[in-house]
């Protein structure tokens, strides 16, 4: 990165050189991402379209796309598109869990973020600390806390029995969907609150005052101004938690252990870490990525359109 000291004379030349300088500053990071993010995706493809070692049955990637073998892929696609087949059932279940968990998260996150951002008052700092705190507590530790509470003799049962809601302790960890979904909500909701808060906090107060001045009630102000404005932020918050949720396998593992609640992540984990048919696992990953890419593309299109509308 040698820097030419006497380059101040000609502006355009400087700019081009400057550009090269900035590019070179970004280079190590870009190279890192190419090597450890993009390249691995190519390797996933090569494994998904590859074969297995004849003896160990470990994957043998096909590096050359011309020699790609599509059979593991066909197997996965067939499983995904045959009604009632295992992959499809698991995928639909994952979709349902993610949809329910995301909606519940939004129902919790939006009011909380709204309140802290708009009505936090002098407690704002304290409330904000409470919202940020879960970031510093590992997801697994938070799940562990719930396992403690949900045990047969845990506090959840104690409280519910004491309050008369239940006659006797209930086995919350016996493989029920509700435990898994609530676990996911608990785990992911903090990641949704913060972006929503950041957005709601930034809404120009004058805009809301103007609405009130024009005679809108608080609710009308919210419905006609705040909510439409938060559309993109809600979408972003949904994307931030929903996409990673599609890869979850540890929440059902910890809170259920039953086949009834297994997600697409569990199937991927089984095939990838199981070692005998890694290409099938890799093909599953590719399909999941393709699906998520579609969601991402939809998100981008919607966002760009919204921006354009605001701009116009």
């Amino acid at each position: 990165m040698s820097e030419d000291a006497g380059a101040a004379a000609e502006r355009p030349v400087v700019d081009r050189r400057g550009n090269a300088f900035w590019a070179s500053l970004a280079l190590p990071g870009v190279a890192w991402l190419c090597l450890f993010f993009l390249l691995p995706f190519y390797v996933i493809l090569c494994v998904a379209f590859g074969s297995v070692h004849p003896v160990f049955l470990t994957p043998q990637p096909a590096w050359n796309p011309l020699s790609w073998d599509t059979r593991a892929f066909e197997f996965v696609l067939e499983g995904l598109f045959t009604p009632g087949a295992a992959f499809q059932v698991v995928f639909l279940r994952t979709l349902a869990y993610v949809a329910i968990a995301t909606s519940l998260s939004l129902l919790i996150a939006y009011p909380v973020a709204y309140y802290v951002a708009r009505h936090g008052g002098r407690y704002k700092g304290l409330l904000l600390a409470g919202l940020v705190a879960p970031f510093f507590i590992s997801y697994l530790m938070r799940m562990l806390a719930w396992i403690n509470l949900l045990q047969d003799d845990g506090w959840v049962n104690d409280v519910l029995v004491w309050a008369g809601v239940l006659d006797g302790p209930r086995n919350w960890l016996d493989g029920r969907a509700s435990s898994v979904i609530l676990g996911m909500v608990y785990g992911y909701v903090p990641f949704m609150i913060l972006p929503l808060y950041a957005f709601l906090d930034r809404i120009d107060g004058r805009l809301l005052e103007a609405a009130r001045d024009l005679g809108a009630s608080r609710f009308q102000t919210f419905r006609l101004v705040t909510l439409p404005l938060s559309g993109p932020a809600i979408l972003a918050a949904v994307a931030i938690i929903a996409l990673p949720m599609f890869g979850d396998y540890y929440t059902p593992d910890l809170l259920s252990q039953s086949p009834n609640t297994s997600l697409i992540g569990n199937q991927i984990s089984l095939y990838i870490r199981g070692g005998q048919q890694v290409p099938v696992g890799a093909a599953l990953v590719v399909c999941l990525m393709a699906f998520l890419a579609v969601l991402m593309a939809y998100y981008l299109v919607v966002t760009v359109r919204a921006q354009r509308r605001l701009g116009g």
Binding site: A26, G29, V30, L33, C34, L35, F36, F37, L38, L39, P40, F41, V43, I44, C46, V47, T58, P59, P61, A239, I240, L243, P244, M245, F246, G247, D248, Y249, G265, I268, S269, I272, V278, G281, A282, V285, L288, M289, L292, M296
Partner: peptide, 29 residues
């Protein structure tokens, strides 16, 4: 493009990145 790639890491499920890195370290690097 570089910005898009880095943002893509944000929404890639961990299991996908974990699989990708595992396969790359075992098979290529």
């Amino acid at each position: 493009a570089a910005r898009a790639v880095s943002l893509a890491t944000l929404v890639t499920p961990e299991i996908v990145m974990g699989t990708a890195l595992l396969l790359v370290f075992v098979n290529l690097l």
